[in-house]
């Protein structure tokens, strides 16, 4: 492998836990997640930063992971789709997406859910126009958009109610 090696590896906070990865500094984060760490919920769609299938959250911001070398996230906080269903506790987004049956093939969903989570974490009461804007870099070919928008709004309502309490 043509990666440059760092001796002590790169440490990140992944879905709340510390992880150190050695020997893959220049490998795109997507491949580190899928191939090295076996976290395959994040999808490969284009490898060119143009479809959003590989979207993850880095330091609260949604970014595509297929064009982001691991060394660029050294020491950062990363969230992937796996965080939505971690340890039995399901995130409102995960519940909403199933309640609304908001997918056809489902391939685009992990990326879309991460883009949505990044928005709702900041702005749980984001109106429709904000949601659309936040998801605009994520493609869905099956045309599940309407249901996805409904699901994100629903999750936002649940999250708003939870913060109000």
């Amino acid at each position: 492998m043509a990666d440059q090696q760092s001796t002590e590896g790169i440490t990140v906070t992944l879905n709340g836990g510390q992880t150190t990865i050695s020997g893959h500094d220049t490998l795109p984060l997507l491949h580190v997640l899928r191939e090295v760490l076996g976290l395959k919920g994040t999808r490969f769609g284009c490898g060119q930063g143009t479809c959003g299938a590989c979207t993850v959250i880095v330091e609260g911001k949604a970014v595509t992971s297929c064009d982001l070398p691991l060394e660029a996230v050294r020491g950062k906080r990363i969230e992937t789709v796996e965080c939505l269903a971690a340890g039995g506790a399901t995130h409102p987004l995960a519940e909403a997406v199933l309640a609304c049956q908001a997918a056809q093939c489902g391939y685009c969903l992990p990326g879309i859910l991460m883009a949505a989570k990044a928005l709702l974490d900041r702005e749980p009461d984001a109106p429709d126009a904000r949601i659309r804007e936040a998801l605009d870099d994520n493609l869905c070919r099956c045309g599940a958009h309407l249901r996805i928008l409904r699901a994100v709004r629903l999750a936002g309502e649940v999250m708003t109610a939870a913060t109000d309490r």
């Binding site: 395959k40 995960a94 199933l98 997918a103 391939y107 992990p110």
Partner: peptide, 20 residues
Amino acid sequence: LPRRDLPNRIFGTPFIHDFA
């Protein structure tokens, strides 16, 4: 009825892309 395959398609790794 809800789709039986949907949870796995969204949160699981059922795709050939995921085979290893």
